[in-house]
Design a protein around this nucleic acid. Structure first.
Length: 286
DNA sequence: CTTCTTGTTACTGA
DNA sequence: ATCAGTAACAAGAA
């Protein structure tokens, strides 16, 4: 489940690999993955090059050199973007062994080939992810809908307080709302609330100053640490070299249902909140 | 066989 | 406007 730290890792990896390389060919294996007009998609990308890669929440934005066009890539739950040269994955200089053996594989939906022979594989088991070409105006509309990211200056106590004050919804659903805060998904929402000591079902407007501050700080710290560890691989996530992330072993609550809480020893529980599987410690979180 | 998994959008009824 | 719940999308794991 790529969330902000995973998409950030891929972005940083790909910047070193595909910027300024001329696009030689595009192979669209599953048409439905490409949300743009098919011929437009091809003609705008061919012989073009990416000049920058940015990220808004969980959305990747590849800026194209000509025509002020942008390639958007959303990985949704199972999407992967893996770059390889000469059929081999180029190690990015970090420890974990690659989990990807064969490329393309049965889940490869799009291949972008560059003039140096390098290929960018878009794999996606469940095919919810997409690629889409947009102009500047449409890009701005999309990006303007995202709330501030936990790492941004605007994401401070004042912002959070104002946001939560007037809302009765449970805090977890608001952490997951990309229009309010961009980049948090199910794994990090649970981790943030555990670290903050706040129960996921608490009504946002019932949180006191101290709890809001704790959530604010926990969000910043957990996402920063997860980026440092190159993200969490729970199921499908790999970085641009096909390597798994290293934050899984740092998770304190997500996926630990039935195990002992690492802080107090209570059994970690799981239930559905905000429509998602939600892990929590009934002793540490209230 | 059923149930569960999740990012996002859409829809319902409150 | 906000909210909780659900479906949809899809494919695999358990």
């Amino acid at each position: 489940m790529p969330e902000l730290p995973e998409v950030e890792t891929i972005k940083n990896d790909l910047r070193k690999k595909v910027i300024s390389k001329k696009i030689k060919s595009i192979k669209v294996i599953l048409k439905r993955t490409v949300k743009s007009n098919f011929n437009e998609f091809l003609t705008n990308l061919l012989d073009n090059k990416f000049i920058s890669i940015e990220r808004a929440g969980k959305l990747l934005i590849f800026e194209l050199k000509s025509k002020e066009m942008f390639l958007l890539v959303h990985l949704k739950m199972t999407g992967q973007l893996i770059y390889s040269e000469n059929g081999r994955i180029i190690p990015g200089g970090h420890a974990d062994a690659s989990t990807i053996k064969d490329l393309p594989n049965k889940y490869t939906r799009v291949i972008i080939e560059f003039c140096n022979g390098g290929k960018l594989f878009f794999n996606d088991t469940r095919t919810f992810g997409y690629m889409k070409l947009v102009g500047k105006k449409e890009l701005d509309e999309i990006v303007s809908k995202f709330g501030p990211e936990p790492g941004a200056k605007e994401f401070n106590y004042k912002y959070l307080k104002k946001l939560l004050n007037k809302r009765t919804a449970n805090i977890k659903s608001l952490l997951l709302n990309q229009q309010l805060i961009a980049g948090i998904g199910n794994i990090y929402a649970d981790e943030i609330l555990f670290k903050a000591g706040v129960a996921p079902e608490r009504a946002a407007n019932s949180l006191d100053e101290n709890e809001i501050k704790k959530i604010n700080i926990a969000a910043r710290e957990i996402l920063r640490a997860a980026i440092k560890y190159r993200g969490t691989t729970f199921n499908d996530y790999v970085d641009a070299d096909g390597n798994t992330g290293n934050f899984l072993k740092k998770l304190k609550i997500y996926g630990r249902e039935g195990k002992k809480c690492q802080v107090c020893g209570e059994i970690v529980k799981k239930k559905k909140t905000a429509g998602r599987g939600t892990h929590y410690c009934s002793k540490c979180q209230s």
